[in-house]
């Protein structure tokens, strides 16, 4: 149990730092989605299934979709560099 939680927390914190420092904006949005997904796993491990479902559906799905559409409309959708 503690190893699973430690690995998930490490992945979550590393991708949270990656959101702030990655130069590519698409990678930053993807890292924000990874933070939400790891958070949903943590909620499920902490016996809160309703919150885990909401976080997985909104944070990892709808919010990433919204931010990616915003990226495309802002002209920041550049795959290379």
């Amino acid at each position: 149990m503690i190893w699973i939680v430690s690995i998930v927390v490490l992945v979550m914190l590393a991708s949270a730092i990656a959101v702030l420092v990655l130069p590519n904006m698409i990678a930053a949005v993807a890292a924000a989605s990874v933070v939400s997904l790891a958070l949903a796993v943590l909620f499920a491990l902490m016996k809160a299934p309703d919150v885990a479902m909401t976080e997985a559906a909104i944070g990892a799905g709808l919010s990433a979709l919204l931010l990616a559409m915003g990226l495309k409309r802002l002209g920041l959708w550049q795959l290379e560099d």
Binding site: M25, A28, A32, F43, L67, L71, L76
Partner: peptide
């Protein structure tokens, strides 16, 4: 500004946890 919005999302997630 866009990266600040992403940081706000992360802050919200931490407070929720």
């Amino acid at each position: 500004v866009f990266r600040m919005l992403l940081a706000l999302v992360i802050l919200e997630s931490g407070v929720n946890l």
